[in-house]
């Protein structure tokens, strides 16, 4: 209370000086006073009263009607004061919730951790950044006993916490598969059963799954309604779209996925991505897929991790450093046999 009284004295001094001089410097001090009052949780009705009391002290014979008008104003401000206090409480709660979501996001990162396999045949780079705290995109690598590399890129339709739960389920399902069963068709068939059994209607997952055979350099792939992926052919320097037919995971429990394969030559670059990359919006327009691919082509000579970092930096800047959608990009480049 004593701090309010000393503030009250300050306010009175400021007010009387201002009424005398109409000095801008005093108005600036009044601004400081209001900021201080907010810090001390002083509500608006309290400020009106401070003004009223100060006025009475400066002009002891204040007109009765003016006095009455202030009482009227104080009465009117009481509910604003309450709303203000309530707002403070809700703000604190919001900070609390935010920190809880932060903890959940950290946990998600730990749960969904996947390490990039090291293999002499291909150089792999990956960048996955959530738009909000929880990531609705997912990528996963598997290396089988022979050293072949499986890679999954997925996107949950729907964002935030439910999407994150769904992703954790998919990851654990994938981990439970035996290391000898990593053909794309088999994986998607099995995952589809898991998703359609365990996820409520209305939540769908798209996934592109690829298997790189490090001996024959065949790339096997299947898609569950996911974005097409690409191969940048070293020979022609042209992108080739790779896509396979298949419904989104979770739509129907008995679905057979199509599996295709293609030969990967030295210096070829496989690009897997989510629609956060190809559908990122800037000033109301969608970025053309070509724009993404051009950036990749421009940096094609770098190693895979450097390529994905460059693409991400480019899009982050394009979107004013505020991602609208989760961003996941995986690049796999077949090493030339000379460099091994």
């Amino acid at each position: 209370m004593s701090s309010l009284q000393s503030d009250m004295q300050d306010y009175k001094d400021l007010l009387s000086k201002y009424l005398e001089t109409k000095d801008e410097a005093i108005l600036y001090q009044a601004e400081q006073f209001s900021k201080q009052s907010i810090q001390q949780n002083i509500s608006p009705d309290e400020i009106v009263n401070v003004h009223y009391q100060a006025l009475k002290e400066i002009y002891p014979d204040l007109h009765e009607q003016i006095e009455g008008s202030f009482k009227f104003l104080i009465e009117t401000m009481i509910s604003y004061g309450l709303a203000y206090q309530e707002h403070q409480v809700l703000r604190e709660k919001q900070i609390e919730l935010k920190s809880e979501i932060g903890v959940a996001a950290n946990m998600q990162n730990t749960l969904l951790k996947t390490s990039v396999p090291k293999t002499h045949a291909i150089d792999i780079g990956v960048k996955s950044v959530p738009a909000k705290e929880m990531n609705g995109d997912y990528h996963h690598f598997i290396k089988d006993e022979q050293g072949n590399v499986g890679v999954a890129v997925a996107d949950v339709i729907g964002k935030g916490i439910p999407a994150a739960f769904c992703m954790s389920m998919i990851k654990f399902a994938m981990e439970s598969f035996s290391e000898n069963q990593i053909y794309p068709q088999w994986i998607l068939d099995s995952l589809n059963r898991v998703v359609s059994r365990n996820v409520e209607q209305g939540m769908f997952v798209t996934m592109f799954y690829g298997l790189y055979d490090v001996y024959t350099h065949q790339f096997y792939y299947a898609s569950a309604g996911h974005e097409p992926c690409f191969i940048l052919r070293n020979e022609t320097k042209e992108f080739e779209e790779i896509d396979a037919k298949g419904l989104l995971l979770g739509v129907e429990s008995a679905v057979k996925y199509e599996q295709l394969n293609t030969s990967i030559h030295e210096g070829d670059l496989i690009v897997l991505l989510t629609d956060g990359v190809t559908e990122c919006r800037v000033d109301g327009r969608f970025i053309e897929q070509e724009e993404v691919l051009n950036i990749i082509k421009e940096h094609e000579h770098l190693n895979s991790q450097e390529i994905v970092e460059h693409v991400f930096k480019y899009f982050e800047r394009l979107q004013d450093f505020q991602l609208r959608d989760d961003f996941t990009l995986v690049v796999m480049k077949r090493n030339s046999s000379l460099s091994v």
């Binding site: 009263n49 009223y52 104080i74 509910s79």
Partner: peptide, 11 residues
């Protein structure tokens, strides 16, 4: 009670 408190009580 002061004027603010009176208003609070009334509210």
């Amino acid at each position: 009670f002061g004027s603010v408190d009176q208003a609070r009580i009334a509210t």
